[in-house]
Amino acid sequence: MATYSQTLRTARQQDFERLMGILARYSIHIILIVWSLACLLPLLLVVSASLTDEIALTRNGYGLIPSQFSTEAYTFVLQDPTAIVRAYGVTIFNTLVGTVLGVLVMSMLAYPLSQPDFRLRRPLSFFVFFTMLFNGGIVPFYILMTQYLKLRNNILALIIPHLVGVWYVLILRTYFAGLPRELLDAARVDGAGEWRIFFAIVLPLSKPALATIGLFVALGIWNDWILALYFISDANLYPLQYLLQILLANANVIANMRQLSTQAIPLQTMRMAMAVLATGPAAIFFLFFQKYLVRGITLGSFK
C-alpha cells in the first residue's frame, strides 16, 4: 500500500518535473528566438529604409516594412555607380591579396615555430608573442607609415598592416604542432626539403585552419575603414566601408549638393541603399562560410 502511494507520488512528481522541463525548454526557445531576431531586425531596418520613399521616410520614420515602397534610392545610386564600383574594386583587391599573402606569410612563420627541432624556436617565439603584451600604439605606427614608409594614399597602406596577426600565428602554430610528426619525418627521410614538405604536406593537411584564419583576415580587411581614415584621402582609393563612413559623416556635404542640384537627392534612403549594396553580398558570402568562423572561435579558445 505504502509502496503504491509512494509510486503514485513519484509518478506525479515526475509528471510535474516533465511539465516543468517542457515549459523551461519553451521559455529557452522564446528567449533565443527573441535574441536571434534582435540580431537580425536592425539589419532589416536598413534594408527596409533603403526601399522606402524618401518623403514617406521623413514623414513616417523608419520601420521594418516600407511605409511607401520605392526603389528610387537604388536608381539614384546606380545612376552613377562609379564611386561604389571603384570602392568595391579596391575592397575586393585588398581582401584577396591581403588574405592570400597574409595566410601564407603567417603559415610560413607558424610552421617553423611548431617544429621542436627548430633551434631558434624559443627565442623567436618570444620575439613574436611578446608583441601581444606591449605595443607602441597608433601614434608611432602613424608616423612610421606616413613619414618613413611613405604609404599615404597608397593602396599598400590598406593591405600591409593586415598581413600578420600574432594571435592567428599562435592558432596556426598550435594546429601545425598537432599534425602527425611521423608523416613529416617520413617525407624528410625520403629526401623532401622543408619548402616541399610545407607546401605539399603541411598546407594541404591544414585546410580547415587555413580557411578559418583566412576568413578572419578577410573579414578584418573587408570591414576595415580605420586605415583609410588615417592614410587615404584620394577618393579613388576609398575602400567600401570608408566610402560609407564618409557618406554618413558628411551629411552636410550631400545636403548642400541637394540645394544646388535641380534634382532632389533622396539623401537618407540613398545612404541606406549604399549600405545594403556594400554589405549584402559580403554578408551572404560570409554566412556561407560561417562554419569556419565557429571552428576558429573554438580553436582560439583552447590554447
Binding site: 536571434s36 537580425l40 536598413v46 565557429v294
Partner: peptide
C-alpha cells in the same frame, strides 16, 4: 547563425542602423 551575424557587420553599418 543569428548570434554570429553581428560579427559580419562593420561598425560603419552598425552606426547606420
Amino acid at each position: 547563425t543569428m548570434l554570429l551575424l553581428p560579427r559580419f557587420i562593420s561598425w560603419v553599418i552598425v552606426s547606420y542602423f
